[in-house]
């Protein structure tokens, strides 16, 4: 068990380092000189050179990469060109919008998808199954930002139950903050839930055909009891895998959804930073998001260990 964990941690570290290198390289290759962007068109060559020296842009690539990674580890993410505040401060403010949003929509996704998928699988080929599958197909086809607008149209414009956009802030009390996050979270959850429903359904259908489910039936368990006690837990392994992969889609979704609802979160910050060529913010944010994806997938790996005792043996390889 300890050996398994150690191996996973080593793999995590390697992936994280690889991620920082690739992001650094991409940002190097992409056109655009930060100093020129800050000073604008028509800057004097010597002021430009002075600023480049001040920003450390004239140092060799290796040194700059080393400094940047060191900064990431120590929490010194550098200074935003446009906001003139430390990037860590910007991120620290906005993460309290994006993180709750992602968590709420993930919870919604699971609460919708797993019961719906199990239900459809247990009614295979019948009307309920066809209905759930059709809804899932439609859910996948609907762009989430359009669904967000429909939610605004119905719940904000017509019914007035929730704000059409903006974020009240947590200091106004959790009630109003959660109200601002409700519609965005639903909009983010819809396509994820649709995909996860399909995965759950087919995974449960597969485990329902397993011998141990028949064994459970032979013990006298009713179909429903055998389904929930034996088929579902075994079916969760591929479901958890997809949930891990979905998390990266969820982060990407926040870029669009935060723009639809004008939420001051990380996605919107990234979008604005890109528009304003605030490259250091872009670089830090992307590495943060990519790091989150990598860590979430690491946690998914750990979840396998909890779900499947076979993997706890040292010689078992990661799925």
């Amino acid at each position: 068990m300890a050996l398994v964990l150690a191996r996973r941690f080593a793999a995590l570290a390697v992936t994280l380092v690889a991620a920082t290198m690739i992001i650094f390289l991409i940002m190097e290759i992409l056109p655009g000189d930060p100093a020129a962007i800050i000073l604008g068109v028509g800057a004097q060559p010597d002021t430009l050179a002075a600023l480049r020296a001040e920003l450390g842009l004239d140092l060799p690539v290796g040194t700059r990469y080393g400094r940047w990674v060191l900064g990431l580890v120590t929490g010194d993410l550098g200074q935003s060109y446009t906001y003139s505040v430390p990037v860590s401060e910007l991120i620290g403010e906005r993460i309290w919008v994006s993180l709750p949003l992602a968590l709420i929509s993930m919870v919604l996704t699971v609460l919708i998808a797993i019961p719906a998928g199990v239900f459809a699988a247990s009614r295979r080929g019948r009307l309920a199954d066809t209905g759930v599958s059709a809804l899932a197909q439609i859910g996948i086809a609907i762009p989430n930002f359009w669904f967000a607008m429909l939610l605004i149209l119905v719940f904000a414009v017509s019914l007035g139950w929730a704000p059409a956009g903006g974020f009240a802030g947590w200091d106004q009390g959790p009630g109003s903050a959660l109200r601002s996050l409700a519609l965005p979270a639903i909009a983010l959850a819809l396509p994820q839930a649709a995909i996860l429903t399909r995965v759950t359904r087919s995974s449960v259908l597969e485990t329902l055909g397993e011998d141990y489910v028949r064994t459970a039936r032979a013990k006298g368990l009713t179909l429903n009891a055998a389904l929930w006690r034996h088929a579902v837990r075994n079916a969760l392994i591929p479901v958890v895998t997809i949930m891990g992969l979905q998390f990266s889609f969820l982060l990407a979704g926040t870029i669009i959804i935060e723009n639809v609802f004008y939420l001051p979160g990380l996605g919107r910050l990234l979008f604005q930073a890109i528009a304003q060529r605030d490259l250091i913010v872009v670089k830090d944010l992307v590495v943060l998001l990519a790091g989150t994806v990598v860590i979430v997938n690491f946690l998914v790996d750990l979840a396998y260990l909890a779900l499947d005792p076979r993997l706890r043996q040292a010689h078992a390889h990661a799925l």
Partner: peptide, 14 residues
């Protein structure tokens, strides 16, 4: 009660 042919798959692995 019934005993099945494949003890490898008749038991729930988790």
């Amino acid at each position: 009660a019934m005993i099945f042919q494949e003890p490898m798959t008749a038991l729930n692995p988790v």
